[in-house]
């Protein structure tokens, strides 16, 4: 068992990484008071854009950039609809997810039989040689380290920087923030675009580094799981990380169990991440005050300086 521990940890971190990107992005969006249910669509479009760009240029990093840009472009559509045109955020988010599924399937048809060269993992010098934790934590795809930097940046930004304070104020009470002169709508635009770009990077990690293949609907609900993670994390970055790796672990355990020949049909093992999502949602929502005290107060509520 112990000789399997390192590969299990490595696989867990890899499986959790798309969730880290998507959920941290959505966390920032929701902290500004915007609920974007289109994460699944943005991830898919990011994944297909990243795959196409990598296939064309041969460079996975151009794919990551393309994924971020595509996710951001999707988020822009959502932002125009909900922030400028004041459409219902729930409906617009669902529309974005449905549109993203369709768009990515349409664009992706041309790439279904294409395969990318796998990118080698990057071992951090010295750290990778540490006994035990070295090979588990410091021999990963470069984008995994980027996700850790992103976590540090988001945590610092939200709780240690002035713009982060303003962003949270906008999410709690846009009326008050507006009254003291904060540009509520532009801040919400930026937060939404950031969320979209990060969902796109999460998708890019899946299609360019993780599999590396394009398969229709390849995110398989990870965008929705990311949304659930933000609730599970009670809108706190550190708990997002814990949740993401927990889900990575559930995904990986299922593969290892199949590999070990556990006498349970494969389909039931594959249900685990989805059932786990339901279980954690129930656990965290059970006490109504947990959500009430932690959710941004104005989440999903429209605000317009000239209408409010």
């Amino acid at each position: 068992m112990t000789d399997q521990l390192v590969p299990i940890l490595v696989a867990t971190i890899a499986a959790g990484t798309p969730l880290v990107f998507a959920a941290l992005g959505e966390l920032v969006t929701e902290k500004s008071g915007v609920l974007n249910l289109g994460v699944e669509g943005m991830m898919l479009v990011g994944a297909v854009a990243a795959f196409a760009a990598t296939a064309a240029s041969g460079s996975p990093w151009s794919g990551v950039l393309a994924g971020a840009a595509a996710g951001g472009a999707m988020a822009l559509v959502f932002a125009v609809l909900t922030l400028t045109l004041m459409a219902n955020q729930v409906a617009a988010g669902l529309a974005l997810s449905l549109f993203g599924v369709g768009l990515s399937a349409f664009v992706g048809k041309a790439y279904e039989s294409v395969s990318l060269a796998p990118s080698p993992p990057l071992a951090i010098p010295l750290a990778a040689d540490l006994p035990g934790i070295g090979p588990a934590l410091f021999v990963h795809q470069p984008l995994v380290y980027v996700s850790w930097a992103l976590f540090a940046a988001v945590a610092w930004f939200l709780y240690r920087s002035r713009p982060g304070l303003v962003l949270r104020a906008v999410g709690e009470s846009p009326q008050s923030a507006h009254a003291i002169g904060c540009p509520v709508i532009p801040i919400r635009y930026l937060a939404t675009l950031f969320g979209g770009a990060m969902a796109g990077v999460g998708g890019a990690f899946l299609s360019v580094f993780y599999t590396p293949l394009w398969v229709e609907n390849m995110t398989a609900g990870r965008g929705w799981i990311a949304l659930a993670l933000v609730v599970f994390a009670t809108w706190r970055p550190a708990r997002v990380m814990i949740g993401a790796y927990l889900f990575g672990g559930v995904t990986v355990v299922q593969f290892f169990a199949q590999g070990e020949g556990v006498a349970v049909p494969a389909q039931f093992l594959s249900m685990l991440p989805y059932l786990a999502t339901i279980v954690v949602l129930v656990l965290i929502s059970r006490n109504i005050n947990t959500i009430r005290l932690n959710a941004p107060v104005s989440l999903a509520k429209p605000f317009h300086p000239e209408v409010a």
Binding site: G41, V77, L81, L85, M86, A87, N88, A91, A92, L94, A95, L96, L98, F99, G100, V101, G102, L103, A105, F106, G108, K109, E216, V307
Partner: peptide
């Protein structure tokens, strides 16, 4: 053309609806 184009049209239909609603509500 791939039949997945259906999904593209479905999503656009809902986007246009949400946008059109704005010009009717406001």
């Amino acid at each position: 053309l791939p039949s997945a184009i259906t999904g593209l049209f479905q999503g656009m239909l809902l986007f246009f609806l949400l946008a059109a609603d704005v010009f009717i509500s406001y």
